[in-house]
Design a protein around this nucleic acid. Structure first.
Lengths: 133, 133
DNA sequence: TTAACTGCAAATCCTTTGCAAATCA
DNA sequence: TGATTTGCAAAGGATTTGCAGTTAA
């Protein structure tokens, strides 16, 4: 498994490997605290500081993404493919949307505003629950 | 001016009026601290707690909007018209974009994903500075 | 061997809260 | 007058940091 990890940081650490594995293992967009609690099941004396330091490093080296939600909660996302998010307004659940949408929006933006946007982000909100029938 | 304010909260307060005026007076998407510093120029003994309490009230009563930026900084926006944001990746400056863009994106979203989104948010990123000529 | 990394605890930053005093209605 | 709002200071929650010990290379 050490070999499957491309080089991250200056050298290998078990803590870093475990933290990355955890973020990659789920599509639940976990918080630092969730990652800490789960990492502790495998490395019981891992510290929260180490979790934060490694999450920052993994974000800096673009192995994972940091999301800041509208409620201020910070979450981490192991899905590096380009995608949008659907945020359920009832449960807070975040669903990855990998379908391409509004494909020429950057061009439309530049044309209409004259500003030079190079990237964009779209979030959708609504209820993911089916109405009772 | 007391009359120009629709009813906000249970009763009038000078602190609340000043805080709302400040947020409405600028398109700079100020932080709580900026609002505090500027409110102090008019009401020198206003407290930061009062600023936070009133900003929360104004957001709850939909007189202003709260923005949470990707760097975690919380900002306030007095522009209640529907608009997008362009965030300059060099200066951090946030520019309101009032042009309609991707107008049928919700329909496209529902059609492609089957999920029932009722709203969405788009942010654009890039440099707002002109290349030197 | 030694620089990177860790655990721990303290520090920091931003925001909220409890309380007694002030104030709007 | 009485309930809302305030100023102040303390508390809270999330994240960062300093440091001495540990570990990968």
């Amino acid at each position: 498994m050490k070999d499957a990890l491309e080089k991250i940081g200056q050298r290998y650490s078990r803590q870093r490997e475990e933290i990355l594995k955890l973020v990659l293992s789920t599509d639940s967009h976990p918080t630092a605290d969730w990652i800490y609690e789960h990492a502790r099941e495998i490395i019981p004396n891992i510290s929260l500081g180490t979790v934060y330091r490694n999450l920052n490093l993994l974000v800096d080296e673009r192995k994972i993404n940091r999301l800041v939600m509208d409620d201020g909660v910070v979450r981490y996302d192991g899905n590096l493919r380009e995608h949008h998010h659907f945020i359920c307004t009832k449960t807070g659940k975040i669903i990855d949307i990998e379908q391409p949408l509004a494909e020429n929006i950057l061009e439309e933006f530049r044309k209409k505003t004259g500003l030079n946007a190079s990237s964009y982000k779209i979030e959708f909100y609504g209820s993911s629950e089916q109405p009772t029938q």
